[in-house]
Computed example of a mutant assay.
Amino acid sequence: MQSISHLPTQQIRNIIRKIRRNLPIEQRLQAEQTIYLQVQQHTKIQLAHNIAIFLSFDGEVNTQPIIEYLWQQGKSVFLPLIDPVKPNHLIFIAYEQDTPLIANQFDIFEPIYDANKIIPYQSLDVIFTPLVAFDDRNYRIGMGGGYYDRLLQNYQQENIYPIGLAFKCQQIDHVMNQAWDIQLPEIIKG
């Protein structure tokens, strides 16, 4: 557990992102295998129909095997897209094997906007949530845009279950959370 919570948030992001990117390949693969097994055995995921997940970026847990697993289980998979109408918000677009992707302004791949493939946020059962750092209370530090904190403000009332995905090396002793920060019900780590 990293004892760096006294540092400014951006500095924490930089440190943890570097640690995450430099994770030895053997350790990374072993951790991801642990995470994949937890995902496969997770009751809420087994019962879910509509699942939102992110495409890995900058050393994050590789989500491609999770996506493949979800497709094999007959789940509908959705990727986040920065809303072109409300740029501080995310929308979710259906993701299939042949869905074309383009890089957004952060160099993160996302589907091309298609109004016919948008799912209302309230129809999602599970939202896999990216994070840079987290603490044992399941508060997270994201990339700084606040997209997921805005998205998840009412997740309990909407009956949506957000799950963080992280390597254990991303855990810090304390996230200095703000009033608007969302505490995740669960983070799957490996």
Rank of each mutant, 00 (worst) to 15 (best):
residue 55 L to V: 11
residue 169 C to Y: 08
residue 136 D to L: 12
residue 5 S to L: 10
residue 28 R to T: 05
residue 13 R to E: 09
residue 185 P to A: 13
residue 44 K to F: 11
residue 53 I to G: 00
residue 76 S to G: 10
residue 40 Q to Y: 04
residue 126 V to Q: 04
residue 184 L to I: 11
residue 121 Y to M: 13
residue 27 Q to E: 12
residue 141 I to E: 01
residue 108 I to H: 04
residue 146 G to R: 01
residue 69 Y to D: 03
residue 111 P to L: 02
residue 161 Y to P: 00
residue 102 I to Q: 14
residue 73 Q to T: 10
residue 132 V to E: 11
residue 188 I to T: 06
residue 158 E to Q: 04
residue 116 N to H: 15
residue 50 N to H: 15
residue 6 H to G: 13
residue 88 N to C: 09
residue 76 S to N: 15
residue 23 L to K: 05
residue 99 T to D: 12
residue 132 V to Q: 03
residue 37 L to M: 09
residue 73 Q to W: 00
residue 53 I to A: 10
residue 142 G to T: 04
residue 92 F to Q: 05
residue 51 I to T: 02
residue 100 P to V: 04
residue 80 P to S: 03
residue 29 L to K: 15
residue 89 H to W: 06
residue 49 H to W: 02
residue 156 Q to N: 05
residue 90 L to N: 05
residue 151 L to A: 11
residue 7 L to V: 10
residue 5 S to H: 14
residue 59 G to N: 06
residue 58 D to Q: 03
residue 4 I to L: 12
residue 49 H to Y: 09
residue 190 G to D: 08
residue 151 L to H: 06
residue 86 K to T: 08
residue 12 I to Q: 13
residue 20 R to W: 04
residue 146 G to F: 00
residue 76 S to T: 09
residue 60 E to T: 01
residue 122 Q to G: 04
residue 118 I to H: 08
residue 55 L to F: 14
residue 153 Q to E: 05
residue 103 A to R: 13
residue 48 A to Q: 05
residue 26 E to F: 03
residue 167 F to P: 12
residue 180 W to M: 14
residue 66 I to D: 03
residue 50 N to I: 11
residue 151 L to N: 06
residue 90 L to K: 10
residue 148 Y to F: 15
residue 10 Q to L: 06
residue 25 I to L: 09
residue 82 I to W: 09
residue 187 I to H: 02
residue 160 I to S: 04
residue 107 D to P: 00
residue 60 E to C: 05
residue 43 T to E: 11
residue 89 H to P: 08
residue 106 F to D: 01
residue 86 K to D: 12
residue 116 N to E: 13
residue 4 I to T: 12
residue 15 I to L: 11
residue 25 I to R: 02
residue 153 Q to D: 02
residue 123 S to F: 07
residue 37 L to K: 15
residue 81 L to I: 13
residue 131 L to C: 11
residue 89 H to T: 14
residue 85 V to S: 09
residue 148 Y to R: 08
residue 94 A to W: 07
residue 11 Q to W: 03
residue 110 E to L: 05
residue 7 L to Y: 07
residue 63 T to H: 06
residue 174 H to N: 12
residue 41 Q to Y: 01
residue 77 V to Y: 00
residue 110 E to Q: 11
residue 75 K to L: 11
residue 28 R to L: 05
residue 144 G to C: 12
residue 148 Y to P: 01
residue 147 Y to F: 15
residue 156 Q to R: 05
residue 115 A to Y: 10
residue 149 D to T: 02
residue 70 L to R: 07
residue 156 Q to F: 03
residue 150 R to P: 01
residue 98 D to R: 15
residue 26 E to P: 00
residue 61 V to K: 02
residue 87 P to M: 02
residue 179 A to H: 03
residue 64 Q to C: 06
residue 25 I to A: 01
residue 111 P to H: 07
residue 95 Y to I: 09
residue 178 Q to G: 03
residue 172 I to Q: 05
residue 165 L to S: 11
residue 169 C to R: 08
residue 114 D to M: 06
residue 144 G to D: 12
residue 21 R to S: 08
residue 183 Q to K: 14
residue 160 I to D: 06
residue 82 I to D: 07
residue 1 M to D: 08
residue 30 Q to M: 03
residue 167 F to S: 13
residue 74 G to N: 14
residue 65 P to K: 00
residue 97 Q to H: 10
residue 98 D to W: 07
residue 27 Q to R: 15
residue 172 I to H: 04
residue 94 A to P: 07
residue 116 N to P: 08
residue 139 Y to R: 07
residue 106 F to N: 11
